[in-house]
């Protein structure tokens, strides 16, 4: 493959790397920071983040967003999605995102419903 086919910018051009190798180390540092933040939050569980937002604790929303950030960099830079054509990128990403969102919507809603059935006393569990 010809040289310089890699796109060497991350964070929308905020950080530019000189070579592909350098970019890889840069992404590693980014992923490590994100993981460290996650573990630190998971251990300390700050009081302020335990209130609920859209049915989930704010802390859990933060975890989910940080996970998606990590997933983005793994796919874009390690799996070289950044260098693929726009169509291939969209085919892979949107197919998965659409189906996963659909599945989660159905399954989690149903889970919540089953909980309510138990909770409102139609089913006895505490014996």
């Amino acid at each position: 493959m010809a040289e310089n086919t890699h796109k060497l910018e991350i964070l929308r051009g905020l950080i530019k790397f000189k070579s592909n190798t350098q970019k890889i180390w840069g992404v590693l540092i980014l992923l490590s920071i994100v993981t460290t933040v996650e573990v630190a939050l998971g251990l300390s569980k700050p009081e302020a983040l335990l209130s609920k937002f859209l049915g989930l604790k704010i802390l859990n929303w933060i975890f989910i967003i940080l996970t998606l950030v990590k997933a983005y960099y793994i796919t874009w830079d390690f799996m070289h999605m950044r260098d693929e054509t726009k169509t291939l990128r969209r085919l892979v990403v949107w197919t998965a995102i659409f189906l996963v969102c659909y599945l989660l919507f159905i399954v989690l809603l149903e889970g919540g419903y089953v909980f309510d059935v138990y909770d409102t006393g139609y089913m006895k569990r505490d014996f």
């Binding site: 892979v92 197919t95 998965a96 989660l104 889970g111 919540g112 089953v114």
Partner: peptide
């Protein structure tokens, strides 16, 4: 990439099932 997308959906199925059980016993 075909394989990865389909395998990703398999794992999503597992994690969604985990989510279901967790919401059921929240």
């Amino acid at each position: 990439w075909f394989f990865i997308v389909s395998d990703a959906l398999t794992f999503s199925g597992f994690l969604a099932a985990y989510g279901f059980s967790r919401f059921k016993f929240i």
